[in-house]
Design a protein around this nucleic acid. Structure first.
Lengths: 240, 240
DNA sequence: AGCAAAAATTGACATAGATCAATGGTGGAT
DNA sequence: ATCCACCATTGATCTATGTCAATTTTTGCT
């Protein structure tokens, strides 16, 4: 039996990202106890499709590394980005209700995702998986609501500032540096996600650089002046 | 013992809105079996506060009649509307994770809400309550994502058209007329929710009236030409 | 490393929608 | 029924951001 990076089942207790699953109640040994095939780590190349809108889906995916974007397509094939998900996020939650994905989901870079099949987890409430899943979903609702506030009724500058701060917080919450991280998504995607023109996003990045708030080397972003960035963000979403 | 309209416990099997709770897995007799005090119907006057941001909350509320708006406040006391909820919706779902409400929630008109205490329902998975709650939450995520698309990256006209269509669909799904219903929220709230100026919203209503797409008598809205309205809405969110 | 394609930046201009201001309606309280 | 405060409408400007176009930078491939 040969193991490729993309295929070999990685045991949960060996997984460096246990913290991804544990909040979901997907405690490694319990998952293992139910069904050895219920979770599978997989490497996806950049721009790989994780799932498509309308596709039957009875799994969720934990992002162990990398990032994805979710989007819908209209008749003329234009994308509308609905979400970005980074390390530590669990994707596919919107599909639980219907059993079918409501968006396309594509990796933004080489990423490792762990597929978690819901079947047996859904039927029996092993070790509080249900409660944890409920909490996870509820958390996501809060998070989305906050994102919503970032988007609506604010200037382009506030949108971009809030977006960067939210990414930064996410990084911190997942043990990464909040001041320096990779922006895996293109300007186009950011612009699309926030309902702005790409040129506007670009100009705001330039502005923030001129003001000494951020710098960027390729896709690495450095937040130089968190306070200033915060001053330029949306007032409702303040955590700090 | 005296019973006031606002206080008298209404038994679930007498409730005309069973359909509100049943999708949440909150099957009347099962709820009853666990804890007689776990659900309580209450009448709220217009503009009454259901809960406040930050408030400890371990219940959800089913809207049996009426409507509410959820909003956050910034330092200077300005509102940002994050959601409207109508008959048949369940509110307070975002609070499950943290046990505290993340928004203010206020009735838009006289409304009857049924408080459902989660305590015992959360601990034991009676008759699939957990699974149903998970489905409900997942559904809400999908719905929000669709709302998001309505707001982002579209013209004011598309936003308003989509907003009206979504309300209309909701009414249909809850056995009301999709062509004629009450708009319980003020123009200001609609504008705030969608990130538009109130004047813009007003102008678009006027435009739609001139084009024979809608009429309105006070707060009653009539959709005269659904097809036209749909043509003016956001292409991504098409259900019809 | 070098080249081609994709992405980002920058500038000039156009416009949708915000803002300001005045007027007209509606509904709740007395 | 009347009044007053709130809400909606309409018109006249102004401005933030979109659009178009040209250039530079980055990225990925051979």
């Amino acid at each position: 039996m040969t193991h490729t990076a993309a295929r070999s089942p990685i045991h949960c207790h060996q997984c460096s990202m246990q913290s991804v699953c544990v909040p979901a109640g997907l405690t490694p040994d319990k998952v293992e106890a139910i069904d050895l095939s219920s979770r599978k780590a997989q490497v996806f190349n950049s721009k790989a499709t994780v799932f498509e809108a309308g596709q039957k889906l009875s799994s969720v995916y934990a992002i162990k590394s990398g990032s994805v974007k979710c989007f819908t397509l209209n008749e003329s094939g234009q994308q509308q980005v609905t979400a970005f998900h980074l390390v530590g996020d669990i994707i596919g939650l919107e599909a639980i209700a219907t059993g079918a994905a409501s968006t396309y989901c594509e990796t933004l870079e080489t990423s490792m995702l762990c597929e978690i099949k819901l079947g047996s987890l859904f039927d029996q409430n092993i070790d509080g998986v249900h409660q944890n899943l409920i909490r996870l979903l509820s958390q996501r609702l809060s998070h989305n609501s906050r994102q919503y506030i970032n988007i609506v009724s604010t200037s382009a500058e506030q949108k971009v500032a809030s977006f960067l701060l939210l990414l930064s917080e996410h990084m911190q919450q997942h043990g990464r540096s909040p001041a320096e991280f990779k922006l895996p998504m293109k300007r186009t995607d950011i612009a699309n996600y926030m309902g702005l023109a790409i040129e506007t996003v670009s100009r705001i990045f330039t502005l923030f650089k001129k003001q000494g708030i951020i710098t960027s080397d390729q896709s690495m972003l450095t937040i130089l002046d968190r306070k200033k960035l915060h001053n330029r963000s949306v007032p409702f979403t303040t955590t700090e």
